[in-house]
Amino acid sequence: MNETEPAIELRDLRMSFGSNQVLDGIDLTIAPGQVFGYVGPNGAGKSTTVKILVGMHDGYQGTARVAGFDVGKDPLEVKRRIGFLPENAQLYEVLTVREHLLLVGRLQGMEDELILERGKVLLEGFELTARIESRLGALSKGMRQKVMITSALLHDPKILFFDEPLSGLDVHSTVLLKELIQALAADGRTIFYCSHMMDVVERVCDRIAVLSKGRIVAQGSFEELSAERGSGETLERIFLELTQGGGEAERARHMLGAFASPAAPGSGDGA
């Protein structure tokens, strides 16, 4: 991949599961060194897009290129150049942190010395060195997330796919990861960032694509998206407008009506 070549390129990407059209013609071009936010409501097709890009799904139509390689034709070349942090991923819980890193590193063709050397630095950053011999099943959700981030970075990939990377992380780790993402991007790495946390996407991402019902309904930098809809809008408001949301306040009031029934248990005086 040369400097001018897009890190990720999608052309008319379509995917359906039976009669359900999950992706309906996605076009995207992401330059190297960008942090690209990919947002959309539940079921919009974010995870499907990511799984296609990392080579976990086939049976799609259109073109998907990562690091200059066609995902369908050269999946191994793609996998050597990417790091993937899935949302809610399972791990082999009986492995220790050390064993997990060795497994992932070796599958990437790395030598043990390098795996441990890099693993040590990354785990130190996450303050996890004391748990190197702990089994993954004995770690909290946040700790497991840190281990997964470590294993995604271990082979020094040029393109990273992060699906809800802040899930389960405490405040310190969240701040650390946001800093890390920006440092990785400044160092020339591309980050494909999927999340529902609009404020983080707004702050961290250089460009943002909003996905709705399998189609991209808007893309650009946050400033561009905001300018299109009048200045002062947050990404959350823009997102709600684009994805036909809204009326949440009215719905919340309606929900409160559920407690008006005098027979409701646990309502104190029954009022």
Binding site: G55, M56, A89, Q90, Y92, E93, V94, V104, L107
Partner: peptide, 17 residues
Amino acid sequence: YSQDWEARWMFQVAPLR
């Protein structure tokens, strides 16, 4: 078979020829 069979995604994203 494994209790953690869903962790097989690790092999799916690994560059194994």
